[in-house]
Design a protein around this nucleic acid. Structure first.
Length: 958
DNA sequence: GTGTGGCA
DNA sequence: TGCCACAC
């Protein structure tokens, strides 16, 4: 290998063009998986690529030795072909998880070899390869295209060959003939007819490669064939060729590679030079390719021991799996500040011109993994306007693109009196669109559901994505919160700029669009920078701690599913709410007068303090207990007790409280959440708020709409469907008890569920020795309360309160329960012991829930933690199951061509809005999917049953 | 057992 | 911030 004068390749030269993007997929599937030892980073394709490059440069001799070489990549998921046919390559699946980081690494490898990396927005790698191949072949040089992509076979001609990089097999005209049955010149026509389901090239129905070759053999070329289609004997084939002639022509446009692209770099730049030992060996060392490092260092006359691994690519030593044990959740040593440079907000860039934007977009494509954060003018994603976007590509490499900052309130945003200079939002989003949709670029967000929702409202999709909040939740639910500030302090030992500092707080707080752009850049770019740093710390731990499946099947897909549900929202009938609000107000006024009459004075009923003074001071009633603050308790249980003794005032107060609650929390508050644009209520689901895996709904909370009392249940009638539609609900019946029966392995309960028996009656029968037939309802009610208590980890205290019985009696019930179902006690003891030993428990799907305080000395505090530990695997498994159903449902509904939209989740229940004529079919499908949601991950030893209901208000059967 | 929210 | 009340 010698340095040559950098001229374009001519006679006697040999140009190698490597299809970098294609190589990754090919190598991923053909080569055994390989992960970096110290942190589990998948590097199989990178290793194959480096070995292949080295072999090409070093071991290929004679006329096959490359004189020129370049690696060509796909710039993004979108090309000029999408303008011809929008569905082109539209249904490609996302690349596998462990492949994504390798896209960026292969570009890094190419640069480490000192070789050119070429890509161009709007064109596929194949088009660039076609252009360079034609230029070189026209100049008389030999060309080898390293790819096994059949689409490139059309390039084969005199002097142009393909080579399969994995099999090292050369593909010339003969091999093309073997594959397509025609000479390379007619490959395009075959593809135009046969189509390609993977790339979504339509072709002509009923015609495959074999038939296409045969037809072209007879008619010569596509145009002639289409013109003479009438002559074809087979009726179906003839009709299709006539009917789909234009589709065949469009297909031909799609498969024809463009060989006259105005390429970004001239061929003369591709002249091969000796690689520099420093960067190359440094990169190989960082990848931990020991054998390859030795071999290459030896050939380059470099001492591998002298060159250190390139820090940028090296594994984070603190994330190592074989040297250090996994970091304890929340432990002080969990901070991983060591490796990366400290946060430098001065390094961030504000993007206000297109050239800079394009440079950042190119950097993002090259990086393979980027962090994205959107800034908006409100916290409510359903109505927030996009104010800016920040991107990060590496440590301290971050930018902010302001899009809708305003010079409000006469503020001088830039300090120079001008209105803030910024790019046009729509234009920027169009530029970002290919990047955000690029299957080879992983977009990392912190709580990315928010960004998905905001961007979706601007018509921009994001895929593939990762979410640092959800990774943290997967690893350490229950150990701590998962907000960015908390994670940053914990893992990066860095406190990000507080929002308050740039936007102010309280009354003078500004929305983000009024924040000066310099401040906005510091804040927003830091968020992206921190997010990417967190990803670097947290993502490898998923692999090391064997939580990749939990993250990928239970957490990550939920962000998109919930973004969709939140965007849909649910319609509420304001008239109904207003009417109820009036009714409740009248009822409250009536009760107030009654209460004041009974008390002999007017006071604030809602004040526990004033109420206490009236009840226990003025009226001289005896207070059963005190609150934590020493105040006499006026809780429902106390008032109920007093009411039962025949006192009217506490009974009326209880009534008042109920109505007051319904009015303030529901009928008055709900209308204020109606979105002006959609006319619907868009709740927000939190994926990382609970310890167990349940969701939490807020603003408004639609998971606690009343149902138990008649007055409360009326509120549900305000939730309605659009005309011609109905709401249907589907809820898991007794899911937690079924899971308890499975997990604790209770034969009687399992049999009862298998036979569809009344589980509470059976429990009562077992415990009290009475037959199920003709059972006293109060006996069944007691058993039901005990069953619930068991799920919650039961205490005699809790059960006694629930059933209004002495603790002693409750204690004997529990003892009897354990006697009849000994598996329960075993489950509880084993779960407590497991939690004490590990600090966490797990669901049958592998979700990990950390239990804090299990080793506290104080018995009551410890017992509380123990009950949480006992409940978590049950509640958590139920949460896992409904998540699995929710993730599958949108696809299943679409596949069945049903228009149903999933609107709400209430822990064990899903609510859909459905066209009236599809209600039955939808209910059946939803039931099937929900009941089957445990498989294939788990086979339960109890059946799951789902009950569906229909109507303006959802079901009351819990 | 797990949550959110209104009110004083 | 604590208390209370709504849901599963």
């Amino acid at each position: 290998m010698t340095d040559k004068t950098p001229t374009g390749p001519g006679k006697g030269d040999h140009l190698y063009l490597i299809d970098g993007s294609g190589y990754i997929f090919r190598a991923y599937h053909a080569l055994p998986p390989l992960t970096r030892k110290s942190d589990g980073l998948p590097v199989g394709a990178v290793h194959g690529f480096c070995a292949m490059l080295w072999k090409l440069l070093e071991e290929t001799k004679g006329e096959d030795a490359p004189t020129h070489l370049a690696v060509i990549f796909d710039a993004s998921g979108v090309s000029f072909r999408n303008e011809i046919y929008p569905a082109y390559k539209a249904q490609r699946p996302e690349p596998p998880e462990d492949l994504v980081p390798q896209f960026g690494l292969i570009r890094d490898a190419t640069r480490a070899f000192g070789l050119p990396c070429v890509e161009m927005e709007g064109f596929e790698a194949d088009d660039l390869i076609a252009t360079y191949a034609r230029q070189a072949a026209d100049a008389g040089a030999k060309v080898t295209v390293i790819s096994s992509d059949k689409d490139l076979m059309q390039l084969v001609r005199e002097g142009v060959e393909l080579m399969d990089p994995v099999k090292a097999r050369r593909i010339g005209p003969e091999e093309v003939m073997e594959k397509f049955g025609v000479t390379p010149g007619k490959v395009i026509d075959v593809q135009a007819l046969a189509g390609d389901s993977v790339d979504n090239v339509p072709g002509v129905p009923g015609i495959g490669v074999k038939t296409a070759a045969q037809l072209l053999d007879t008619y010569g070329d596509l145009e002639t064939l289409l013109e003479k289609a009438e002559e074809i004997k087979q009726p179906k084939r003839r009709e299709n060729l006539i009917a789909f002639a234009d589709q065949a022509r469009v297909s031909k446009l799609l498969v024809t590679l463009k060989d006259d692209v105005e390429v970004p770099e001239p061929l003369s730049d591709f002249a091969v030079r000796d690689p520099e030992a420093g960067p190359l060996v440094g990169f190989l060392k960082a990848m931990e390719f020991t054998t390859l490092t030795k071999r290459i260092a030896g050939k380059l006359d470099a001492d591998a021991g002298e060159i250190s691994a390139t820090a940028e690519f090296a594994a984070d030593p603190d994330a190592a799996v074989d040297e250090a044990p996994p970091v304890e959740a929340g432990a002080p040593g969990a901070a991983v500040a060591g490796q990366a440079a400290p946060i430098d907000t001065a390094a961030y860039q504000t993007v206000t011109d297109m050239e800079t934007l394009d440079r950042w977009i190119a950097r993002c494509f090259a990086a393979g993994v980027i962090a994205v954060d959107t800034e908006t003018d409100s916290l409510d994603a359903a109505s927030a306007n996009l104010v800016g976007v920040s991107l990060a590509t590496g440590v301290n490499q971050a930018c902010y693109i302001p899009l809708a900052h305003r010079a409000g309130d006469g503020l001088d945003l830039d300090g120079n009196g001008d209105a803030p200079k910024q790019l046009d939002r729509a234009e920027v989003l169009e530029r970002l669109r290919p990047l955000l949709a690029d299957p080879a670029t992983l977009k990392v967000g912190q709580n990315i559901k928010y960004d998905l929702l905001v961007l979706a409202r601007h018509g921009v999709e994001v895929a593939p994505y990762d979410d640092t909040m959800l990774i943290s939740y997967t690893l350490e639910a229950g150990a701590h919160g998962h907000g960015m500030d908390e994670l940053s302090k914990l893992h990066l030992d860095h406190a990000p700029i507080p929002f308050k500092e740039i936007a102010g707080s309280g009354k003078s707080a500004k929305t983000f669009d009024l924040v000066p752009i310099a401040d906005a850049t510091r804040y927003a770019a830091e968020d992206a920078d921190v997010t990417l740093r967190l990803w670097n710390v947290l993502k490898p731990r998923l692999l090391a701690e064997r939580k990749v499946t939990v993250y990928e099947t239970l957490e990550r897909p939920m962000a998109r599913v919930l973004a969709g549900m939140e965007r849909e929202g649910v319609k509420v009938d304001v008239k109904v709410l207003n009417r109820l609000s009036n009714d409740f107000a009248k009822e409250m006024a009536r009760l107030e007068e009654e209460i004041f009459a009974l008390a002999g004075e007017r006071f604030t009923i809602g004040s526990p303090k004033q109420l206490g003074e009236i009840l226990f001071g003025k009226m001289g009633l005896v207070s059963a207990k005190k609150t934590a603050t020493g105040q006499a308790a006026t809780g429902a249980d106390v008032l109920e007790e007093l009411a039962a003794q025949g006192h009217d005032l506490p009974a009326r107060v209880l009534d008042w409280r109920q109505v007051s609650k319904l009015k303030s929390t529901y009928t008055d508050a709900l209308p204020t959440y109606i979105n002006k644009e959609t006319g619907r209520v868009h709740t927000s689901y939190s994926l990382a708020a609970t310890t167990t895996g349940r969701l939490a709904s807020s603003e408004p909370n639609l998971q606690n709409i009343p149902i138990r009392t008649d007055m409360g249940r009326e509120i549900r009638t305000a939730f309605i469907a659009e005309p011609g539609n109905v709401l249907i609900s589907a809820d898991y019946s007794q899911i937690e008890l079924r899971l308890l029966a499975h997990i604790a392995d209770i034969p009687q309960l399992k049999t009862a569920f298998a036979h569809g028996l009344d589980i509470h009656a059976l429990t009562a029968s077992e415990m009290f020795g009475v037959p199920v037939e003709g059972m006293d309802p109060s006996v069944r009610r007691r058993a039901k309360a005990i069953n619930f208590g068991i799920i919650y980890g039961i205490s005699a205290f809790g059960l006694a309160n629930q059933l209004h019985i002495p603790q002693e009696e409750a204690r004997t019930y529990i003892a009897r329960y354990f006697e009849r179902f000994p598996g329960i006690r075993t489950y509880m003891d084993e779960t407590k012991a497991f939690a004490r030993e590990h600090g966490y428990v797990e669901t049958i799907f592998g979700r990990r829930i950390h239990v804090r305080g299990i080793d506290q000395k104080q018995p009551s505090a410890r017992a509380f933690a123990e009950r949480a530990a006992i409940n978590a695997p049950i509640q958590g498994a139920a949460a896992d199951i409904i998540r699995r159903a929710m993730i599958r449902l949108p696809g299943e509904l679409a596949a069945a061509r049903l228009k149903a939209r999933m609107l709400l989740q209430v822990h064990d229940e899903l609510i859909f809005e459905v066209p009236e004529d599809e209600a039955d079919k939808t209910a059946a499908l939803v039931k099937r999917v929900m009941e089957g949601a445990t498989l294939p991950a788990r086979q339960l030893s109890v059946p799951l049953t789902v009950e569906t209901g229909r109507g303006p208000n959802w079901d009351a059967a819990h």
